[in-house]
Write a protein that binds this DNA or RNA. Structure first.
Lengths: 222, 222
DNA sequence: TGAATAGTGTCTTTCAGACAATATGCC
DNA sequence: GGCATATTGTCTGAAAGACACTATTCA
């Protein structure tokens, strides 16, 4: 039963977002520096309170725009953390989201409404506020798993990309090299991408064919 | 950022639970009849408000005991639904849980603290309150997927069971028959179960060996 | 011995993984 | 021609799926 008239004491509800992107062959995550207690001055996930008239997805989108200056990224709900002690002062339940962005199409610096925001390599994370480290680890596990059975990687790529670009993203997320021939065989057999007909050029080597995802919706493969 | 001192208007937070069990080769779910508006008299998922001093998991366990008279069942968080209009009166965000029980070890009738509660076949569901129908469909999808790559089915079985018992649960959840030889080959190759040494008896046919799960924790296979 | 369910093996196809040579564009 | 990256195929082992007969207990 989801509702009655009794006026219980109510917890706060926030959204926190894991925005991953790949830069320089490195998986990075957007962090912001807290301006308020508790954990003032610590790095934390971008996020904030859910407003009364917006859905959870909308709240996550709004926070990403406000704190990360990113719009139109892949977004999926991850998990809801609600330990009574996770915030040292109030009871705060947080609904977490996994977001992916193509770093080449967006500039983190140009926002800045919310103060300091920075991309950190997941291999060199600072100490994080609250239980945010646990949340990051949870999201990383999900991302690693999901890249193996879905087209989720499309969130990290521009509209057109080469097979080498695609393979690099897989390698960075999984953390190990992949055989080129086997990778291409498998990708092409899934039928999720198609050639655009265009080719890369201007470099002193053989040009590569560009591909696109047939659908920009999340697809579970198999 | 998960908290500050500003006192926002706060949504209510509930947990709602999908308790599945198998009876008579039929997948069934626990529903309760609402005693309060809105949707008074409608069937709904068991659930209720999260208390200030309990975690989400604890709230789900408590509600299952209060409304379903079940204890010690498999429980995992499913998804959090937070559309502002999902409850026609208040803003209510609900964290949903998937629970599995072995129906042979529990009697739904003996509880009754929360009024009418009944097991319904997922093939013949009544009209449900709120967005609970959508939640049930979401949970069914997760259950079907997860039975294929985890030992989650252990939640539906007693401590000791035969391979035929195990196969029946799979068939009921997936909704189609499975080849006995291939099923056994695959299950045994995963190594998640082991024979107890005992045998079924008393029936006019060959006795079957009993098995148990080596671990009662959720294991992802592959 | 008949009824009812338990238990078991082979063949084929598909998929994953190891492995290296040729093709193309630009300078 | 030399450099840098793109593109391509074969073999092998493992797993999945189709398929049918024998074994055991009790009435």
């Amino acid at each position: 039963m989801s509702s009655n008239k009794v006026d219980f004491q109510r917890p706060s509800v926030t959204v926190d977002i894991l925005l991953f992107t790949v830069q320089e062959n490195d998986l990075r995550i957007l962090l912001v520096k807290r301006k308020l207690t508790p954990f003032k001055g610590s790095w934390a996930l971008p996020g904030g309170f859910v407003h009364m008239n917006e859905s959870l997805d909308e709240a996550a989108k709004r926070e990403l725009l406000e704190e990360g200056n990113v719009d139109d990224v892949y977004l999926e709900q991850l998990y809801t953390f609600g330990d009574p002690k996770r915030d040292p002062r109030d009871r705060v339940i947080t609904v977490t989201y996994l977001a992916l962005a193509d770093s080449s199409s967006w500039n983190i610096k140009s926002g800045g409404d919310a103060g300091e925001a920075e991309l950190y390599s997941v291999k060199k994370l600072p100490v994080l506020a609250f239980d945010h480290r646990k949340i990051v680890d949870y999201g990383l596990d999900r991302l690693k798993a999901k890249i193996g059975y879905s087209n989720i990687v499309l969130g990290l790529l521009p509209d057109e990309f080469t097979l080498t670009d695609l393979q690099k993203k897989h390698e960075v997320i999984l953390g190990h090299p992949i055989d080129k021939r086997n990778f291409r065989k498998k990708i092409m057999s899934t039928g999720v991408i198609e050639p655009t007909g265009k080719q890369s050029g201007g470099s002193a080597h053989r040009p590569a064919a560009f591909y696109r995802f047939k659908s920009k919706k999340l697809i579970i493969i198999d």
